[in-house]
């Protein structure tokens, strides 16, 4: 169970979602991924993508400039 970080800063939605999706493809169940974004849309889109694809958002934290969404990888297909 490893912790990974994905830099999705300056990307506009849906690109942060796409990068998250593609990154998670190479992870294993139980791994976590922290995605750092600047597009506020990611705060809604990444959790929505996780809900429909069976992953769990375990934390969302934001500063003035950035949002970090931490995901626990669920079962992969």
């Amino acid at each position: 169970m490893s912790l990974h970080t994905l830099d999705a800063r300056r990307l506009l939605c849906p690109l942060p979602v796409i990068r998250t999706q593609n990154y998670i493809k190479n992870l294993a169940k139980g791994d976590s991924l922290a995605v750092i974004c600047t597009d506020p849309g990611a705060e809604h889109d990444i959790p929505a993508w996780c809900r429909i694809n069976g992953h769990r958002v375990i934390d969302i934290s934001s500063t003035e400039e950035e949002i970090t969404i931490t995901i626990e990888v669920g079962t992969l297909v």
Binding site: P14, V17, I18, Q21, D45, A48, W49, R51, I52, N53, G54, V77
Partner: peptide, 14 residues
């Protein structure tokens, strides 16, 4: 994403 959630299906964004 919203549509996929309504349908309860997976969505792959390419």
């Amino acid at each position: 994403l919203w549509v996929a959630e309504q349908l309860g299906i997976k969505l792959h964004i390419l």
